[in-house]
Simulated assay, not measured.
Amino acid sequence: MTIDKSVFIPVNPDEAFALITEPERLRRWKAVAARVDLRVGGGYRWTITPGHSVAGTYKEIEPGKRVVFTWRWEGQGAPVADASTITITLEPADGGTMVRLVHEGLAAVEEAGHTEGWNHFLGRLVTLTTTGDAGADDWSAAPDPINELISAEAALAIAQRTLASLTTADMGRQTPCEDFTVSGLLEHLIGSISSIGKALGVAIGDDPVAALEKRLADVAQPTLEAFQARGLEGTIDMGFAELPATTVANILNLEFLVHAWDFATATSRTLEVAPVLSEYVLALARNTIAPSMRGASFAEETLVEESAASLDRLVAFTGRQTAIL
């Protein structure tokens, strides 16, 4: 089965090529996380939505014109040789570029789902290039099924989008964490995720002058990819202690989602989180934050109404006020 779709976007072919090949641009419309080795024979892995990742190999690359790559969902039992193939061709058009996507080699049972998927994501590409922002992806908001690593990917998407909205003027603002400005909290977040990545055996690279969202993505993507490959069984040596893998995954959730709230609150932005995700992370927090951790890593739980939204109950459980006082 073959899917053949074309859309017009109001950018030139070189800009269009960047949007379909560069991780920081793919995250704007297509992926939660992306690893790309853009060369013939190079591989890629994209987390399309939390819990759903695709990988493949680049077969042909013509910058500004064309790219061909294999496509295979992780976890599929079919041999790699049976992967389907995607060809994206870029043709100059009046005022922009025609983007043609041809997805070949799909099984009949895959056609409807992939057609829906490409309609969704090509629509987001058009929105991004015409308005400057594709918006948060509803498909990533409330993952189902869910576990500690899938929820971490959903929380990462929220954290990345929050950081992408910050400006240089925001860096000195006070966050709900009384010891941290926005700039200081970012360094704490990068350091925390990097330490988990290193414990998982990942070589972490951080460019301190890169865009804020890119800095987080560059340490979070390899960390989560390594965690997914390892699984949630057993323990992880964090250097200071041997912790259950589930506890380390819980920490990732709290780092991404609670600090996203910190950044948004510090800069008077509204954080949109699906209740199913904030409720799930609240349950993880209750299994992670022991009374002995209060006063050191976490302040005492603050009080909110029992009817409060799950995100408000989550941040209150971590010792934050629901507004900066």
Rank of each mutant, 00 (worst) to 15 (best):
K5E: 13
I20R: 03
T21D: 02
T21N: 04
A34S: 15
G42Q: 09
Y44W: 12
R45V: 12
T47C: 14
V54E: 06
E60P: 05
I61S: 01
F69A: 12
F69W: 10
G75Q: 10
A83L: 09
T97Y: 04
V99A: 07
L106E: 09
E116T: 09
N119F: 08
N119R: 14
L128S: 08
T131R: 01
A134R: 09
G135E: 00
G135V: 03
D137G: 05
D138F: 08
P143I: 10
E148P: 06
A155Y: 03
A157P: 04
T167H: 13
D170L: 01
M171H: 02
G184H: 06
S195D: 14
K214V: 15
D218T: 04
D218C: 01
D218G: 03
A220V: 04
L224Y: 00
Q228V: 14
L232M: 14
A241R: 00
A249L: 04
I251F: 11
I251H: 07
A260N: 00
F263D: 07
T267D: 04
T267R: 03
E272F: 08
E272A: 13
P275Q: 06
P275F: 08
A296Q: 09
A299I: 00
A299D: 15
T302G: 09
E306M: 08
V315S: 03
